[in-house]
Design a protein around this nucleic acid. Structure first.
Length: 204
DNA sequence: ACCCAGGCGCATG
DNA sequence: CATGCGCATGGG
């Protein structure tokens, strides 16, 4: 099945998603922190962690970069790999403060390619996390590939080896103008639908 | 008592 | 380049 058909099918089945799961106010920073915390874990576990960060007044680059690691670890414990993720949050926050005055909007003025490379250069941020930040916080036109995407693609379209191959496949087959959507909206909605699909049915 | 989740970094062959 | 492993909690 081609991707546009698949998109329409999912939309028919699940309706409009228009996504990033809301926990607090969904600031750009909160979305980015969520993207890091959700690495290889379920969103419900992440949601608890984000609520704790909000309650503890830790949802800011300043707070995260300066607070005691133990305090942060305790707060995000439910998201799993909490020691590694504490380190990741601190590195991300310190980078943001040092290079962009703690403001993601300054960072997001950069071109997509440059911004992506810069995120990837940070310890703890790989392709999926970088692309989630760029698409969902930055509203940049980049398609996020995750485990669900690969599963869905394998089942209905084709199978590839690498992250980049999947991403190329989606981006070249969903050119701007398809369905009259902007790329950003289309990528956002499609990926959200894929996650909805993945959660909905155990696997296979 | 297993199995897995919206990954990533690092060590090997 | 491509596997394999550790990281860790919480829900089925």
């Amino acid at each position: 099945m081609n991707l546009v058909k698949l998109f329409n099918q999912l939309r028919k089945q699940y309706g409009s998603q228009s996504w990033w799961p809301v926990v607090g106010h969904n600031s750009l920073f909160e979305i980015s922190i969520g993207a890091i915390l959700t690495q290889n874990t379920t969103w419900t576990n992440v949601e608890k962690a984000i609520k704790c960060l909000l309650d503890a007044d830790l949802m800011s680059p300043q707070a995260i970069s300066t607070c005691a690691s133990g305090k942060l670890q305790k707060c995000i414990r439910s998201s799993g790999y909490y020691k590694q993720k504490t380190k990741k949050l601190k590195i991300f926050s310190k980078w943001l403060i040092k290079k962009y005055k703690g403001n993601l909007r300054f960072f997001l003025k950069k071109s997509l390619t440059t911004a992506r490379e810069e995120l990837l250069s940070l310890w703890g941020i790989g392709p999926e996390t970088a692309d989630s930040i760029l698409l969902y916080a930055g509203k940049k036109p980049i398609f996020v590939i995750d485990a669900y995407t690969k599963r869905l693609c394998k089942k209905y379209c084709v199978e590839f080896k690498t992250y980049n191959e999947y991403q190329q496949f989606f981006e070249t087959n969903l050119r701007a103008g398809v369905l009259g959507w902007t790329k950003t909206k289309l990528y956002n909605e499609f990926h959200a639908l894929i996650v909805r699909w993945g959660k909905g049915r155990g696997y296979n």
